[in-house]
Amino acid sequence: MSDAYLLYLEDIQKTYGDKLVLADIDLAVKQGEFCTVVGPSGCGKSTLLRLILGQEQPTSGKLLINGRADVLHPSPERGIVYQRYSLFPHLKIIDNIMIGLILPLPFWKGIFKKKIIRKEALHYLEQVQLAEHAHKYPHQLSGGMRQRVAIAQALIKKPQILLMDEPFGALDPGTRESMQMLIIELWERHNMTIFFVTHDLEEAVFLGSRIIVMSQYYLGGSEKTDGQAKGARIVSDHSLEKASSTHYKESDEFGKFIQQIRKEGMDPAYLQHVTQFNLQHRDSFQTLTSEERAVLQ
């Protein structure tokens, strides 16, 4: 059954030294989902993303990409857009996009195929509306433009899943909004699966087709850390309506939902027991130990 999912995590734990960051993460994501992840700052969102990417290894647990477990290190199946340092400073914009098609070839073949590859790269550059900047260097572009290049750079590899770690976090609000519209458009056009980490609740609710809330504020849990800081878990999981325009952000419904998510995830005083998490999404599941389950009776 775990094969039906593009991304499948079971009992994932991650510790740094003595510090438990992720405690028992269970997550299954279907192909085509735009999955946004929110949670209090420092709860381990980026850590989770790095585990999925293969940049780091889980301390324990099962992680499958398309049913395969042999995905230890970063590979072309998983694309990444970071908040910064995403582009190669020594390459022009067009070469930054072409590099994804050139690197897998032996370098002499890269030279012969350059023309075809350049054409395809230009096509992607047009989709992020940057064709006229093809021959500039990254340092000559604004932050928003650079992120658009980074998105095109990842897109050209047609990754099975695109991971984004606060990609718009460093942009000003206006640029941010246009980037949000762009990513929704690209997601629909390319039928992508996206895993999008953000600290901005509005952004998460606006963009996602599914929102995952992580938090270290909850009751119970089998790990023996009661009293100390706990490792984060997924405390709530909802499917979201597709936003058609930015006006959605002004609606009452939108505001109420934000309030609910803020309470479930961000409020240190609002503590739910592990058995009471608001896991409404049809793909969500939870592996509980017998002690945890015992509380239910």
Partner: peptide
């Protein structure tokens, strides 16, 4: 050089030698 850049190169299909000598 940020670790992110090396990870990025791997996701773009670079081999290990490719990361060192081509990126």
């Amino acid at each position: 050089i940020p670790q992110n850049m090396i990870v990025k190169s791997l996701t773009l299909g670079a081999s290990q030698a490719g990361v060192i000598y081509r990126v």
